[in-house]
């Protein structure tokens, strides 16, 4: 506990507590529509956190993170549908497979010193490769889609992850909170310091004895494992999986967009970004619904993202936290 809050301003702690409390009691007050938006927000915040661990902490850019969501989702769904294995148990297999895939990509990339843009393209290639393969596996529903039996929404069965929207809300909220705590602990640990050294200057880090390959692999493994867990939740929340909408590059971009907007490398960037982008998308949908013009929503969406990149290239969190005076002492910034 002490390590968690050390160096954080009291004001920031109070705000965080208020924010967390608001999220915990939110289902009592909001409509089912708002709750569904909050669920998506938290999902993106969680996955963003997992992605951020790789790029923001360890400096390794992945543009194929939808791959790990997809592997987690398909593994747990296949185990549930074909063998009736509950998601909490299937999750172990899902995470193992995600981590294994992440490690294969990492091994290939880091062993052969494929860096930066090339590594990013390698991750895209793997995601698209798996997309085409899953497209051709009838056991996983191929292009036609993979469906979980529709849940009885009245009875909450936490063990089988079948139940109401509120249950899914609390599960993803707990995951997001856990990811935040984990990232905070990792960032301030020795491991986190090694990562940041690699991110800032790989050559210097190697020169002072940081084992590049090992620590990059650990970053990929943790990130892909966390993302795989999100996949399990995703499969049981949506009950249907299609290769194209699960693995595609467009999906990977969607997953990382919030974090980039919120601020890569910051702890609250992924959360802030998700809380801005998802509602923004909803608002745009409502505003443009009446216009009956195809593509107008995505047009404004693209303009907003481009504007953020051009005018707030460090993301919004550093700017907002400075504005409200939430920054820790200088030099202690996570």
């Amino acid at each position: 506990m002490n390590r968690l809050i050390k160096g954080v301003r009291p004001r920031a702690l109070v705000l965080l507590a208020v924010f967390a409390a608001a999220l915990v009691i939110a289902p009592l007050f909001v409509s089912s529509y708002v709750l569904s938006v909050l669920i998506i927000v938290l999902y993106f915040a969680y996955v963003g956190q997992a992605w951020n661990l790789m790029i923001g902490f360890a400096g390794q850019l992945s543009l194929g993170h939808a791959l790990f969501v997809g592997i987690g989702a398909y593994t747990s769904a296949a185990l549930f549908i074909h063998f009736g294995i509950a998601p909490w148990i299937g999750m172990f297999a899902a995470v193992a497979l995600s981590v294994l895939t992440g490690c294969i990509i990492g091994y290939l990339g880091f062993r052969f010193s494929i860096r930066g843009v090339y590594f990013a393209l390698l991750t895209i290639a793997f995601a698209e490769f798996v997309l085409v393969i899953v497209d051709h596996i009838p056991w996983l529903g191929s292009t036609g889609g993979f469906f979980l039996p529709v849940a009885n929404r009245d009875r909450i069965d936490l063990f089988n992850l079948r139940g109401s929207q509120i249950m899914f809300y609390y599960v993803i909220l707990a995951l997001t909170a856990a990811a935040l705590v984990l990232c905070r602990l990792l960032l301030n640990s020795k491991l986190g310091l090694y990562w940041q050294a690699i991110r800032e200057d790989q050559e210097s880090a190697e020169a002072i004895g940081v084992h590049l390959f090992r620590y990059k692999m650990i970053a990929v493994a943790i990130s892909s494992g966390l993302t795989g867990i999100a996949g399990v939740w995703y499969a049981f929340y949506y009950n249907n999986l299609f290769p194209e909408t699960t693995f595609s590059t467009a999906k990977s971009i969607e997953l990382i967009l919030g974090t980039v907007v919120g601020g890569v490398g910051t702890l609250f960037g992924p959360i802030l970004g998700a809380f801005i982008l998802t509602p923004l998308g909803e608002v745009l949908t409502h505003l443009t619904e009446g216009m009956k013009i195809d593509g107008i929503k995505s047009f404004f969406w693209g303009v907003c993202v481009a504007a953020i990149v051009l005018f707030r290239p460090t993301g919004l969190w550093p700017w907002i936290s400075a504005l409200f005076g939430l920054d820790p002492r200088r030099g202690d910034k996570p």
């Binding site: 967009l257 980039v260 593509g295 107008i296 929503k297 995505s298 969406w301 990149v309 051009l310 290239p313």
Partner: peptide, 28 residues
């Protein structure tokens, strides 16, 4: 030109945004 000094992922995101804008214009 304005993002030339930024990290890879920011450049990537800008170009992805440009792509989204172009698709939407074609769609419209």
């Amino acid at each position: 030109r304005r993002v030339a000094h930024l990290a890879d992922h920011m450049q990537f995101l800008l170009m992805a945004a440009v792509a989204v804008i172009l698709i939407s214009v074609c769609l419209m």
